[in-house]
Simulated assay, not measured.
Amino acid sequence: MVKIKNLYKKFGKQEVLKGINLELKKGKVTAILGPNGSGKTTLIKSILGLVIPTDGEIYVKGENVRDNWSYRKYIGYMPQIAVFPENLTLKELINMLLDIRKEGYNPNIKDDFIKHFKLEEYMDKKLKNLSGGTKQKVSALITFMFDPEIYFLDEPTVGLDPISSSFLKDKIREQAERDRLVVLTSHIMSEVEELADDIVFLLEGVIHVQGSVKEIIQSSGEKNLERAIAKLMEKKYNA
């Protein structure tokens, strides 16, 4: 569904991505991991069209995305920190987005998120007055309510209470079961182990390890993903 061929990105003299080749398949949750400076944010923003690669190709549903922004209609993006028009109420934000983007809108999904996140009481409140956790719920709501085919979720459960986090995790897994493509990042390895099917682990702009969660844990000889990733990093930096 998303195919990346020989992707490079430089910022000045700094080479951030160094020939990435990757295929992201629907029906799976893929976690893109790596320490700060590994290139994962640049990779994701390149796919989203927020960063223009220096070289290489990106295909979404078989179409080259270079100079072609129509593919974005297939994508739902939940950033780590969402920026909203602060003087709008939540109701006004939803109505504005519906005016801009009607394709894919699913009122049942919207109502389900509003109900489980208990957002009814915030509908007439200004977005600037909402807590960080409530803004995170709003970000999830507007990402999922258009029922996209492809999800990019950056630290999706940050700031959520356990009940809301569990609900969102169920929805993330549900999308994979519906044959959607879900790509997420998280620094919480127990969460990645719970949610992800596959791991793409970047170091210094290259794919250092790629495989299923189970394969990576087993090959490391460790008992969980957090220890497996720590072992990979120790081997790299102590080599």
Rank of each mutant, 00 (worst) to 15 (best):
M1P: 06
K3R: 15
I4K: 07
L7M: 04
F11I: 14
G12H: 06
Q14T: 13
Q14P: 03
G37Q: 09
K40H: 13
K40T: 08
T41A: 12
T41I: 15
T42M: 11
I44F: 14
I44G: 09
S46T: 14
L48A: 09
G49Y: 08
G49W: 07
G49H: 03
D55N: 13
E57W: 06
N64K: 14
R66E: 13
Y71F: 10
R72K: 15
R72Q: 11
Y74P: 08
I75N: 11
G76N: 09
M78N: 08
Q80V: 12
Q80I: 07
Q80C: 09
I81E: 15
I81W: 05
I81K: 15
E86P: 15
L88W: 00
N95Q: 14
L97K: 03
E103P: 01
E103R: 07
Y105H: 11
N106Y: 11
P107V: 01
N108F: 13
D111K: 00
F113L: 02
Y122A: 01
Y122R: 01
D124W: 00
K126T: 05
S131C: 10
T134P: 06
V138G: 03
V138T: 05
A140C: 09
L141T: 00
I142S: 00
F144A: 04
F144P: 01
M145E: 08
D147M: 09
P148I: 09
Y151W: 06
E155Y: 10
D161W: 01
I163A: 04
S165Q: 15
Q175Y: 10
Q175W: 08
E177C: 11
D179C: 05
R180Q: 01
R180F: 00
L184G: 13
T185E: 01
S186H: 06
H187P: 10
I188F: 12
I188L: 14
S190W: 03
E191W: 13
V192N: 07
E194W: 10
L195T: 12
A196K: 11
A196T: 12
D197N: 15
D198I: 03
I199P: 03
I199G: 02
V200D: 02
F201K: 04
L202G: 00
E204S: 11
V206D: 01
Q210P: 09
K214A: 04
S219H: 11
S220N: 12
K223G: 07
N224V: 01
N224M: 02
L225T: 02
A228D: 05
K231F: 10
E234D: 13
K236L: 06
Y237K: 12
A239E: 14
